[in-house]
């Protein structure tokens, strides 16, 4: 093999960092919280700290590097809060819809509510419940049996004569 011809183009995503520094973790978390709509540095710091604290409890996922794990932890933190606020079980298929509703701008001041005492989040809760997407109505199952179509065949009448059970 001519090794000179091997492509050495840079990968699309940078290689994972095996042992990331805490600065790197906080940097990535900060960027992620900002993308979620948390802009207050104090809130970002507090949320990042909570996310980092969750790391040891997160189940190991193959293929997830340490930095990606803190992003998963941040999502898990948010889902926990949503589950509590909306009284949803966790895991629940509605949680992703709730997260989407939260991030869609239906509750612009949600980061403040995140830090508010539990009883003070009711307005936010109502806004979220209204904004949660409902892609389909509840099922009303019905049956649609495949109809029989007897295609024309020149051999059909002969076969019916030959096999009396098919005459009906």
């Amino acid at each position: 093999m001519d090794r000179g011809k091997v492509s050495v183009a840079a990968p699309y995503l940078p290689a994972p960092v095996a042992a990331p520094s805490s600065e790197l973790l906080l940097d990535r978390l900060g960027a992620y919280w900002l993308a979620l709509g948390v802009s207050d540095p104090d809130q970002v710091a507090a949320l990042s700290e909570q996310a980092l604290r969750r790391l040891p409890d997160l189940p190991e996922t193959p293929g997830i590097d340490p930095v990606a794990r803190v992003i998963v932890a941040a999502g898990d933190l948010l889902d926990d809060w949503l589950a509590r606020a909306l009284e949803l079980p966790k895991p629940s298929p509605t949680l992703a819809a709730a997260r989407a509703a939260l991030l869609s701008g239906a509750a612009p001041d949600w980061p403040a509510a995140l830090f508010a005492p539990p009883g003070e989040a009711s307005i936010l809760r109502d806004a979220l419940r209204t904004a949660i997407a409902e892609p389909a109505p509840i099922p009303s199952p019905g049956a649609m049996p495949a109809q029989r179509i007897d295609l024309f065949s020149l051999l059909g009448p002969l076969l019916r004569l030959w096999r009396p059970e098919t005459r009906a």
Binding site: P14, R28, A35, D65
Partner: peptide, 17 residues
């Protein structure tokens, strides 16, 4: 989908935000 979301944010590729 969730894994790739975490992966993108952990590696910070150009234009991720």
């Amino acid at each position: 989908l969730l894994r790739l979301h975490a992966l993108f944010w952990s590696r910070s590729p150009a234009g991720v935000s």
